[in-house]
Amino acid sequence: MARKQSATKQPATQQPTGTSYLEWAVAAVGTVLVAAAIAYLVWYGIARPDGPPELAIRQLSEIQKIRDGYLVEVEVENYGHSTAAAVEISGTLEQGGTDVEDSSATIDYVPQQSTRQAFFQFSENPADYTLKLRVKGMAKP
């Protein structure tokens, strides 16, 4: 009640104002946004299929020649339902069962149902060898 009394004492520019239709419209947008976010999160929390991260690695593009060797772009996809952190991946060039060259990379996060890209760099031309791609391990976030 004290609020109302002192509010009326203030100058005209600070008179309490009602809420216009436009403001109510924006407020409605806000309501929808919060409600949608909460509803989605709760739905996801209930429906979320559990399980470990399931990572698959594949080569993306053609081998690219760079100044200091060759680049192979790879993509890691997480088909599982939890996020993988600090994902270590490696690519090995092989010839007749012996390893010729290694390259590795670490990806900070691969969220569930998401993909992340990385490059392997070799000094030998990967086209001359068999390229073996591997996901070596990951941490739970």
């Binding site: 403001e23 924006v26 407020a27 947008v29 806000g30 919060v34």
Partner: peptide, 9 residues
């Protein structure tokens, strides 16, 4: 209403 407007923005 004000807080919902703030959230929308």
């Amino acid at each position: 209403a004000d807080s919902l407007v703030a959230i929308a923005v």
